[in-house]
């Protein structure tokens, strides 16, 4: 996971560098000389390509495409800022420094005062805290639910699928103190065309029309959030109902202790607390 983030950042940084080399103004600042026009054009195109590759990488590998795009934008900002602060530090920038275009600043009374050291430390510690928060947040990012080890690969009727709870936390207690849990499913590509709808419910459905909440979503991954019964135990069963376009109905089930162990444990704890 962290490798993906690093790759997105490095690709963005290289992409921006490419864009900079592609311009007449920034190329000398970045590489020390002005490349020929065709070379600049090539770098410009390469820069955009690298940014696009970073975007595709983010959208494909991070949780969902939406999360990927958002994180890509974040890494873009960091890469851009890094480049801005990196530029003046490059060794061939000194020539610019020795010949200031602006008139030298007039001395003010403040110039004699030494800069307080505490300010340096406050600044540095703020920077360190920011980095630490970023690293902790990165480490806490969950991998995509369907790629986790606990995801269930199975078959309902003729259709194969992967199913997993979206997060492995205890259920979320919502309105009327009702606990809810979200799940994600992906059917095989060919199956998607044959399936009309898929439903999820705890406890065996007593009729087709009470098969539970239907999975929804536009992509290949479909999500659903269901109400959990107040008397749920680890042995309660989670039932998946798939209805085909030909009208066929297929069902399969698992114990909750297999699909949502944290939720089963949460209910057991509620029971003892009562």
């Amino acid at each position: 996971m962290s490798v993906t983030h690093l790759a997105i950042f490095v690709l963005s940084l290289l992409g921006f560098a490419g864009l900079a080399v592609g311009t007449e103004r920034y190329a000398p600042q970045l590489v020390g000389f002005k490349p020929a026009k065709p070379a600049r054009k090539a770098f410009w195109i390469l820069g955009w390509l690298l940014l696009a590759v970073a975007l595709v990488l983010a959208a494909q590998t991070l949780q969902t495409a939406a999360v990927g795009v958002t994180l890509w934008l974040g890494w873009l900002s960091l890469a851009g800022l890094s480049l801005v602060f990196l530029l003046p530090e490059l060794p061939w920038q000194r020539s610019v420094k020795t010949a200031p275009r602006r008139a030298p600043r007039k001395a003010t009374t403040n110039d004699d005062k030494p800069v307080r050291k505490s300010r340096h430390w406050i600044g540095l510690s703020l920077l360190a805290v920011t980095v630490a928060v970023c690293v902790v947040a990165l480490l806490r990012v969950e991998t995509m639910p369907l790629h986790r080890d606990d995801a269930i690969k199975g078959k309902v009727g003729p259709w194969s699928f992967t199913l997993a709870e979206i997060d492995r936390d205890p259920p979320e207690v919502m309105y009327l103190d009702v606990p809810l849990k979200a799940y994600r499913i992906r059917f095989c590509d060919a199956c998607d065309l044959e399936i009309l709808r898929a439903y999820l419910k705890v406890n065996e459905p007593r009729a087709l029309r009470v098969s539970g909440m239907a999975f929804g979503g536009n992509g290949r991954d479909r999500d659903v959030e269901i109400q959990l019964p107040s008397n749920l135990t680890g042995d309660s069963e989670l039932w998946l109902t798939a209805v085909g376009k030909d009208g066929s109905v297929h069902r399969t089930s698992w114990p909750m202790s297999r699909v949502s162990p944290a939720s089963a444990a949460w209910f057991a704890q509620q029971e003892t607390a009562r």
Partner: peptide
């Protein structure tokens, strides 16, 4: 960027008012 929104999940809660009466309240999560 719009993520699949879980906003309109119906929730239902039922209790026994007394031995012979049930009261249910419905809503959204």
């Amino acid at each position: 960027l719009a993520s699949p929104a879980f906003a309109h999940e119906p929730v239902l809660r039922c209790v026994l008012l007394d031995e012979s009466t049930v009261r249910c309240r419905g809503g959204y999560a």
